[in-house]
């Protein structure tokens, strides 16, 4: 049966709305401040949403399930791991903004172990590196980045074992 359009996380949104309504009655000022902060975050995310639509559209257009499975699927091998690491490093924006695209890849046959590697490699934020260098120095930044990549690989391995069970 073909899956139709369906909103995800509606119940979760209702819970958050109820939390705001309750907060408005208990602590009006903090509720307004929270709403202000949330709107600020939403405003900052708008260009990232556009970026995600463009990337997703390019993937939909250029990559077919067979190609995705070749890079992220069962027989992807070492190449798939490298793709997962690179994709993690270059991806922008908060993790939750990527959920839709990642779930689409899963439905098309992507391996969970590679997605776990992708998610952890996202801890390396290339646009933020100059900022990190300025605060923590070169040695710290290089060592931390090395361990992030190493543990992204290890997590993928462990997830691979768990997937086989």
């Amino acid at each position: 049966m073909k899956k139709g359009f369906q909103f995800k996380g509606l119940k979760f949104l209702y819970v958050v709305i109820i939390a705001y309504v309750v907060l408005f009655f208990i602590e009006n000022e903090n509720a307004l401040l929270s709403l202000q902060k949330a709107l600020g975050i939403l405003y900052q995310l708008l260009p990232i949403f556009l970026f995600i639509i463009i990337i997703s559209a390019l993937i939909n257009y250029f990559l077919k399930p067979k190609q995705i499975i070749k890079h992220f699927g069962k027989d992807s091998g070492a190449k798939g791991v490298i793709y997962a690491l690179l994709a993690g490093i270059i991806s922008h924006g908060p993790m939750y903004a990527w959920y839709g695209m990642i779930q689409e890849l899963r439905e098309q046959g992507a391996k969970d172990s590679l997605l776990i590697t992708f998610f952890y490699a996202r801890a390396i934020k290339i646009p933020m590196l100059p900022f990190m260098l300025g605060i923590f120095g070169l040695a710290f930044t290089v060592i931390l980045s090395f361990y992030i990549l190493l543990f992204a690989l290890l997590q993928g391995k462990v997830m691979g074992w768990l997937e086989r069970e």
Binding site: F7, L13, S34, K37, I52, A57, L58, A97
Partner: peptide, 29 residues
Amino acid sequence: KAIKKAFLSLVSMMPMLLGVIGLIGIMQT
């Protein structure tokens, strides 16, 4: 079709995204 699919995928996630953003606002306060 590729753009439409990408757009609808993001729109379907909107309730979840707005919920997370709303909760982050409360946490940051």
